Computed example of a mutant assay.
Amino acid sequence: MTWNMARRAERLNPSIIREILKVTERPGIVSLAGGLPAAEGFPVQAMREATARVLADHPQEALQYAASEGFAPLREWVAAQLATQGMKCDADQVLITTGSQQGLDLAGKVLLDPGSTVAVESPTYLGALQAFAPYEPEFLAVDCDEQGPLPAALKAAKGARFLYMLPNFQNPSGRCMGAARRDALMAECLRLGLPVVEDNPYGDLWFDQPPAAPLAAHAPDEVLYLGSFSKVLAPGLRLGYMVAPRLLYPKLLQAKQAADLHTPGFNQRVVHEVIKNGFLDQHVPTIRARYKAQRDAMRAALERHLPAGCQWQLPAGGMFFWVTLPEGFDTLALLPRAVDAGVAYVPGAAFYASEPRMNTLRLSFVTVAPELIEQGIAALGRVLKASQEVQP
């Protein structure tokens, strides 16, 4: 007997980040690789109390099958929260997903045919490339600067099924679009008839001032919006959401039903119990303060230890530094040497849909204490300087 795999299976590839994380389990490795929220920020006590209340007040309902759309009070909370950011939507446009990663998969399932064009930033989120790839699209990388896609570059994307963007503290680059760039991008998308998939897992993690209004606030019927509870509560709950134009919602719901019937209702009820009375207003600022201190520690370490010619942009929020090394460096080839020296990072090549820049890397600052950030960046600097000395 021979198992014949579908053609789409050939486009399924392991996550380089997940593979690197296996290596970082070795003792003594300072991992600046994983994009994991800091576990110290998980609201364990609030979750414990909410779980007890849910099981005391609605045990049968919490443990039973539930509506595919999601827990109605949670959907209402999402709609109300987005309204405070200038984005108008109704609760019946909100679809609760099993992490926002499922939202990416559902978008690909509903919107893509083999050979369809998907426009993406350069670089872009590796998980989105992995989610879309099984549906056999052609990726088109849009030219970007320190704020993201250049409006003039969107002409090349005319006719694409959608443009995928992370406007807030992008993974991997950490960049954030200003209000004027958002206005210009959406005006050009509307002119070209180019729909947008807006992914916003990091928008609440700003350090000094919140980002501008979502892209979906400009044109709600042309934007499919994705959000997540992973970065502000706990990723292990696997809880995200989509806000869909009414034209798309029925098919996204049907795709969701076919995938998993519904996101765990127990998780949804517990999260709603935690957040319904304003818990995040007190909790999220503590996360921001922690991450900002760690960002500042990494900035100082980069300035002290990296060789001349290295470039990075100071992130105003989120979780990542994106570092560009001088030409001639290959961060994928250097990774084993860095691990031997006691530090791990993510090579930047994996984040490009085409023409990867081998001299780039991503560093996460949120799961490592400042003193370990200093240790890890010092080790990275030594590896880079040693490599630089032997280059022709």
Score class of each variant (00 low, 15 high):
Ser122Asn: 12
Ala67Thr: 09
Pro151Tyr: 01
Gln81Thr: 14
Trp77Tyr: 09
Leu126Lys: 12
Asp113Tyr: 14
Gly99Trp: 00
Glu138Gln: 15
Ser122Val: 14
Thr97Ser: 05
Lys109Leu: 11
Ala152Glu: 15
Phe71Val: 04
Asp92Phe: 03
Asp113Leu: 15
Phe162Val: 02
Val94Arg: 02
Pro59Cys: 02
Ala79Asn: 05
Glu69Cys: 08
Gln45Lys: 13
Pro37Val: 06
Arg75Tyr: 06
Thr84Tyr: 08
Leu126Tyr: 13
Val142Arg: 05
Leu63Ile: 03
Gly108Gln: 00
Ala128Gly: 12
Gly159Ala: 04
Gly159Tyr: 01
Ala131Glu: 00
Leu111Thr: 03
Gly108Phe: 04
Tyr125Ala: 10
Gln81Met: 14
Ala133Tyr: 08
Tyr164Phe: 07
Tyr65Arg: 14
Glu69Pro: 07
Val142Ala: 06
Ala39Asp: 13
Pro149Ser: 00
Ala157Phe: 03
Leu129Glu: 06
Leu112Ser: 01
Pro137Asp: 01
Ala72Phe: 09
Trp77Asp: 10
Asp145Met: 04
Ala133Pro: 08
Val78Trp: 02
Glu49Asn: 09
Phe132Glu: 03
Leu106Thr: 01
Gln60Ser: 12
Thr98Leu: 14
Ala56Gln: 12
Glu121Met: 15
Ile96Glu: 01
Val54Ala: 00
Pro149Arg: 01
Glu76Val: 09
Asp113Thr: 14
Gln85Ile: 11
Asn168Gly: 08
Gly99Ile: 00
Ala160Tyr: 01
Ala91Lys: 05
Met47Pro: 08
Phe139Gln: 03
Gly159Phe: 04
Pro43Trp: 03
Lys109Met: 13
Pro37Thr: 00
Ala39Cys: 07
Ala50Met: 00
Gln102Leu: 07
Phe162Thr: 02
Gly86Trp: 00
Glu61Ala: 12
Leu129Tyr: 05
Val110His: 02
Ala152Gln: 15
Leu163Met: 02
Ala83Gly: 11
Gly41Tyr: 06
Pro59Arg: 04
Ala52Gly: 11
Asp143Leu: 15
